[in-house]
Design a protein around this nucleic acid. Structure first.
Length: 316
DNA sequence: AGGCCATGCATCCCTGTGTA
DNA sequence: TACACAGGGATGCATGGCCT
């Protein structure tokens, strides 16, 4: 998808109703909300932004025309003030604009009021704010494409009958406090964490592929590994999965370019970081799920029975 | 009555192509 | 080169049937 950069401006409904009115109407057997609506709001809460086609894939898979269903339901949620929407500009055979949705303040309040009673994790959350949605376009696209990857893996798992878990990004952050005196705490904040069958992946979606920033990340990961800090959060060591373009991509309107992740492989090799895979957009988007290790070995991420070179090193 | 679903039609915007 | 127009992808909206 080729994006044209414009300043994102969220569209607000003309006559949103208040939380009190909403909860009155939402009650009872013929309330104006369904559990699916709540699931959609949940997904927006955890994953921030969704394209209409992504709502369609996740919540209307049985329909003959999922995008139509999705847009109809999302229009209702928008008119009632539960979501914000924004129509970006794309080009090159992509047709016309597709809506991007985000959670509104009312949507958060409704979700919080209805689900907090039996969903403990909400109570411990720092207060969410609608202004979280005001981000740079590059950040918005990054999140959308990350979600697209996670959704595509989910659908592929369903097709193959494999278990899949997609952790909400905000629940995967880990603050690591090193044991050594004077060492500063640091944050490990993956873009997403997914489990495919028995493999745990720590997903890094790299659109801008800045080598300097990546170098800093690899240092953090090495510490995270060597100190075993991952054990505080996960039952197995996560494999880092770097996802991004093999070829530099195009972005209209600004001098910004999407960069290839290939230079990052060299950095990783020189750093001696192991148990990390690289998966190219051009491959997974065409249904080819073969990732590469730093030594250019091919691995099928749906079938990781072969030992990786990292495992072999540990055995020696 | 309102939610859900299928369908049809209008409309919007981008792209490609033909013509003067 | 400039312009008009058709086609494609996607949304917006109205309608009608069925179900709870």
């Amino acid at each position: 998808m080729v994006w044209v950069y414009t300043i994102p401006s969220w569209e607000y409904p003309k006559e949103p109703i208040t939380l009190e009115e909403f909860l009155k109407k939402a009650a009872g057997p013929h309330g104006i909300l369904t559990t699916r609506d709540l699931d959609i709001l949940d997904t927006l809460y955890y994953h921030r932004f969704l394209l209409n086609i992504q709502v369609a894939k996740l919540f209307f898979p049985e329909s003959k025309t999922p995008p139509v269903k999705a847009s109809q339901r999302m229009k209702i949620l928008f008119d009632r003030g539960l979501v914000l929407r924004f129509r970006p500009i794309v080009s090159k055979h992509e047709g016309t604009h597709q809506f991007i949705y985000a959670l509104s303040q009312l949507g958060y309040d409704v979700l919080f009021h209805i689900r907090k009673r039996y969903d403990k994790e909400f109570e411990d959350e720092p207060r969410w704010q609608e202004t979280n949605n005001v981000v740079e376009m590059s950040r918005l696209i990054h999140d959308l494409e990350l979600n697209e990857f996670c959704i595509t893996v989910k659908l592929e798992c369903e097709k193959r009958g494999i278990n899949y878990t997609w952790w909400p990004t905000r629940l995967t952050w880990q603050k690591v406090t090193p044991k050594q005196l004077m060492a500063k705490p640091y944050m490990i904040s993956p873009d997403a964490v997914i489990r495919i069958d028995n493999s745990l992946f720590h997903v890094e979606y790299e659109r801008s592929a800045n080598p300097e920033r990546f170098f800093v990340k690899t240092n953090k990961w090495k510490r995270y590994r060597s100190t075993g800090a991952w054990k505080e959060k996960w039952t197995q060591e996560p494999t880092i999965l770097v996802v991004g373009g093999r070829e530099p991509g195009e972005v209209k309107g600004k001098s910004r370019k999407e960069k290839s992740i290939i230079p990052l492989i060299d950095i990783t090799l020189k750093q001696g970081l192991e148990n990390i895979f690289f998966l190219f957009d051009e491959d997974w988007q065409n249904g080819n799920w073969v990732a590469y290790t730093v030594r250019n070995e091919r691995v099928d991420i749906f079938n990781l029975t072969n030992l990786t070179s990292w495992d072999r090193l540990k055995l020696y």
